[in-house]
Design a protein around this nucleic acid. Structure first.
Length: 288
DNA sequence: CTAGGATCCTGTCAGC
DNA sequence: TGCTGACAGGATCCTA
């Protein structure tokens, strides 16, 4: 679930809560969730590559963390900071059944929770972080990519559906199911449009839309989603504050009032306004 | 090389 | 109540 904006929000939170602190102990509850032997030392930096986080330790080791669908990072010190898949774990007593790894610092604990166990923490040499397969194959993020470059990349997947292609992290980094739907809506493009039918100007619009929706979310994350969870368990549904289509099926389109519908595209739940996002005709086969 | 479907895993929800 | 199938904010692996 966590996409680029959520991961960036977590990165900023960790910079504040664990940078400069010393990692002193590791407790692994699920072997699958922790790859390699635990390492210790002072945290010198926290970096982000697409949806992956990298925590650099003094001494030459790093922890790469990918939250995948249901991962969360929750720091419990004097106050609590939680990010990632939003659920009751944000306010639960930890560790709990979904806690896979606990990283202990002098003054607090960083819990890695993950319902579905798709996410992981992996120990790497800091020098080898950029040789990691996932990071090595990662494309540029939307802000670093020119419209021409994006368009050319789409043209390499003429027959694939646009939504599937923008979810591909080797095409453009950072989008997930929410921001893909939001960006396509903003750009007025149907998610099942084949890339070959996407024009140069549309590609440019889509790239701009991707930047816009994620910028907005990072900004919102700073205040709402980067929850400093209070005793009262504040857990704002930040999606409601900015989503135009995601999880809004049955509700009116904010642009034209038509009901948003949920369909399936590229195997994923997909939300569109059927009036603002129209599928251009596929090239018809010659018949008979 | 591309395209599309299955798969990893746990939990929840709708429908019987 | 219990069972069943569908589905989930991701990415990889396998097949054609």
């Amino acid at each position: 679930m966590p996409e680029l904006p959520e991961v960036e929000t977590i990165r900023r939170g960790l910079m504040r809560f664990i940078k400069g602190k010393k990692l002193v102990r590791t407790e692994v509850f699920c072997e699958k969730s922790f790859v390699g032997e635990p390492v210790y030392g002072k945290i010198v930096d926290i970096r982000r590559f697409g949806k992956a986080l990298v925590i650099d330790l003094l001494g030459g080791f790093s922890l790469m963390i990918h939250l995948r669908m249901t991962g969360q990072l929750i720091f419990q010190g004097e106050e609590r900071f939680a990010g990632g898949h939003p659920n009751e774990n944000f306010v639960d007593r930890l560790p709990n059944k979904q806690t896979r790894v606990a990283l202990y610092f002098d003054d607090g604990v960083l819990y890695f929770n993950d319902q579905r166990k798709f996410g992981f923490i992996k120990v790497l040499l800091t020098d080898d972080v950029e040789k990691d397969e996932f990071i090595r194959k990662l494309a540029k993020e939307p802000w670093e990519m020119s419209a021409e470059e994006f368009y050319e990349k789409l043209q390499r997947h003429k027959l694939a559906l646009i939504k599937a292609v923008i979810l591909d992290q080797t095409v453009v980094a950072g989008l997930g199911n929410i921001y893909a739907d939001e960006a396509l809506f903003l750009a007025g493009i149907h998610p099942a449009q084949r890339c070959g039918e996407i024009g140069c100007l549309e590609a440019e619009r889509l790239l701009g839309a991707a930047r816009e929706v994620m910028d907005k979310s990072i900004e919102a994350g700073g205040s709402t989603m980067a929850t400093y969870v209070k005793a009262d368990g504040t857990r704002g549904d930040y999606l409601e504050s900015f989503a135009q289509v995601f999880h809004r099926q049955g509700k009116p389109c904010m642009r034209c009032g038509t009901k948003i519908v949920k369909i399936k595209v590229a195997g994923r739940g997909t939300h569109i306004c059927p009036k603002c996002q129209v599928l251009k005709n596929e090239l018809k086969e010659e018949n008979d």
